[in-house]
């Protein structure tokens, strides 16, 4: 899976959890916090991405992720591992 494909999955789940982002761009460099996500939202987004990508990994691996780019990079690495 390419990074671009994983980014699409991430974007879908960000829009799903933060349902008020309609029509708004989701830049790779943004942080979830900047988009308005609280700690529950951030965990939900990570959980849903892991489910969609059918990964079996500890969720605490997402704790150090700083922005969407980091989230996409981590997921891409895991999908292709």
């Amino acid at each position: 899976m390419t990074q671009a494909e994983v980014f699409e999955v991430v974007k879908k789940n960000i829009r799903d959890v933060l349902f008020n982002l309609e029509g708004q761009e989701i830049p790779l460099a943004a942080s979830l916090k900047e988009l308005g996500a609280n700690s529950i939202d951030r965990a939900d987004i990570a959980v849903q991405c892991v489910e969609d990508l059918q990964l079996k990994i500890p969720m605490i691996e997402f704790a150090g992720v700083q922005n969407i780019e980091g989230l996409v990079a981590l997921l891409t690495r895991k999908v292709n591992a």
Binding site: S39, R42, A43, A46, P58, M59, I60, F62, A63
Partner: peptide, 8 residues
Amino acid sequence: DLSLLSYL
């Protein structure tokens, strides 16, 4: 965030 994820 780490605590929430660890809880899960």
